[in-house]
Amino acid sequence: MHLFTKAMNNTNYDACPECDLLLKPAQPKPGEKVHCPRCGLLLSRPRKQSVERTFALSIAGFILFFPANLLPMVGLTVLGNANTGILISGVIALYNDGMEAVAIVVFLASILFPLVHLCLSLLISGHLYFNRPNRYLVAWMRWMHHLDEWVMLEVYMLGIIVACVKLMAIAPLKLGWGLYAFIALIIITTLLTSSLDNRLFWQRIEQLRKENKNAS
């Protein structure tokens, strides 16, 4: 048993993150899916030109982030008074009502985390695209991995839909350009998550570091 483990090379094996099954890594072609044979978890789904696509989508997402946050999303007119809402104005309204904790949660999940996530994927894919080593690449990858779950743009979108349905009963609604930019931003971030191949990114980062070490 001990001899056996010594003979095994780290890179020749892989483990399933959810059931810990020891696997020989498959070499899937782009477009193919690899599932864990024991628990069925999707292990990898390589994409064509993952780095290039992620880089392009990060730029697009970063640009869209600003109109989605600054242009009015939904407008409501009651008795001649018009109110328009953007992402941050909901946070401010909650804060002024004395709901500081909820306001902070909404701010983080709908504004700050999505922005940080976009910046990180832009930085990482940009460095990989131009083959630039950076000692912070590893930390950026880890932060992005931990942020994944807390970026809640699509949940916010559902919140907008439900709020609109409720408001339609009160007064006529006007949908603004901010909402369309926000929808585009959600599409971009969804494409971005599916184009980002974690395994490939980690391999490229390690490769860059080794090259850098050899060069210096």
Binding site: N81, A103, V155, V162, A163
Partner: peptide, 27 residues
């Protein structure tokens, strides 16, 4: 799990938009 935040986001929008002289929504 994260989809439950829906209600919270909806409230943040309602609180923001429905704030006229007579009618107001408070969380």
């Amino acid at each position: 799990g994260r989809w439950s935040m829906l209600d919270i986001f909806m409230i943040s929008i309602l609180v923001d938009l429905v704030d006229f002289g007579g009618i107001q929504i408070i969380a």
